[in-house]
Simulated assay, not measured.
Amino acid sequence: MLHEAHLGLDPVQETLLLTLHARALDSRAPEPILGDALSAEFADRIDYDFARLKLKPSLVASTALRARKLDDMVRRFVTAHPDAVVLDLGCGLDTRVVRCAPPSGVDWYDVDLPVVADLRRELLGERSHVVGADVTQPGWLRDVPGDRPAMIVAEGLLPFLPGASFRTMARALTEHLPTGELALNGYTRFAAWAMKYHPTIKALGIDAAEGFDDPREPERWDAGLTLVEEQLLTRAPEVAAFPQPVRALTRLMSHSAALSRQGARVLHYRF
Rank of each mutant, 00 (worst) to 15 (best):
residue 3 H to M: 00
residue 3 H to A: 13
residue 5 A to I: 02
residue 10 D to R: 01
residue 13 Q to F: 06
residue 16 L to K: 01
residue 17 L to Y: 09
residue 19 T to P: 01
residue 19 T to M: 04
residue 20 L to K: 02
residue 21 H to I: 00
residue 22 A to K: 07
residue 23 R to G: 04
residue 24 A to M: 01
residue 31 E to V: 00
residue 33 I to P: 00
residue 34 L to G: 05
residue 37 A to W: 12
residue 40 A to T: 11
residue 40 A to V: 11
residue 41 E to Y: 06
residue 42 F to Q: 11
residue 42 F to K: 00
residue 43 A to C: 11
residue 43 A to T: 04
residue 45 R to M: 04
residue 52 R to I: 07
residue 53 L to G: 10
residue 54 K to I: 10
residue 55 L to K: 03
residue 56 K to H: 13
residue 57 P to Q: 12
residue 60 V to A: 09
residue 63 T to N: 07
residue 65 L to M: 12
residue 65 L to T: 12
residue 66 R to Y: 14
residue 69 K to W: 15
residue 70 L to I: 15
residue 71 D to C: 05
residue 71 D to M: 06
residue 73 M to L: 13
residue 74 V to W: 14
residue 74 V to A: 15
residue 76 R to G: 13
residue 81 H to Q: 15
residue 83 D to E: 15
residue 88 D to Q: 11
residue 95 T to C: 14
residue 101 A to I: 04
residue 102 P to E: 06
residue 104 S to C: 05
residue 108 W to P: 06
residue 113 L to E: 08
residue 117 A to V: 02
residue 119 L to P: 01
residue 119 L to Q: 01
residue 121 R to G: 11
residue 121 R to N: 06
residue 121 R to F: 09
residue 121 R to Y: 02
residue 123 L to V: 01
residue 127 R to I: 08
residue 127 R to P: 04
residue 128 S to V: 02
residue 129 H to I: 09
residue 136 T to D: 12
residue 136 T to F: 12
residue 138 P to G: 01
residue 143 D to E: 13
residue 148 R to Q: 09
residue 148 R to N: 13
residue 148 R to E: 09
residue 149 P to H: 06
residue 150 A to G: 14
residue 151 M to K: 02
residue 153 V to C: 07
residue 154 A to P: 00
residue 154 A to W: 00
residue 157 L to D: 08
residue 162 P to V: 03
residue 165 S to M: 05
residue 167 R to V: 09
residue 168 T to L: 01
residue 169 M to G: 09
residue 169 M to W: 10
residue 173 L to V: 14
residue 176 H to G: 00
residue 177 L to S: 08
residue 180 G to V: 08
residue 180 G to E: 12
residue 183 A to W: 02
residue 184 L to T: 03
residue 185 N to D: 15
residue 194 A to Q: 02
residue 195 M to I: 07
residue 197 Y to V: 03
residue 198 H to N: 15
residue 198 H to E: 10
residue 199 P to R: 10
residue 203 A to C: 10
residue 205 G to P: 04
residue 205 G to Q: 08
residue 206 I to R: 03
residue 207 D to E: 11
residue 207 D to Q: 02
residue 208 A to G: 12
residue 209 A to L: 07
residue 215 P to V: 06
residue 221 W to F: 05
residue 225 L to D: 04
residue 228 V to F: 12
residue 231 Q to R: 07
residue 234 T to D: 01
residue 237 P to G: 11
residue 237 P to E: 07
residue 237 P to M: 04
residue 238 E to N: 02
residue 238 E to V: 03
residue 245 P to K: 09
residue 252 L to T: 08
residue 255 H to Y: 14
residue 259 L to H: 11
residue 259 L to K: 09
residue 261 R to S: 15
residue 261 R to A: 15
residue 262 Q to I: 00
residue 263 G to V: 02
residue 266 V to L: 11
residue 267 L to N: 11
residue 270 R to D: 13
residue 271 F to Q: 00
residue 271 F to K: 02
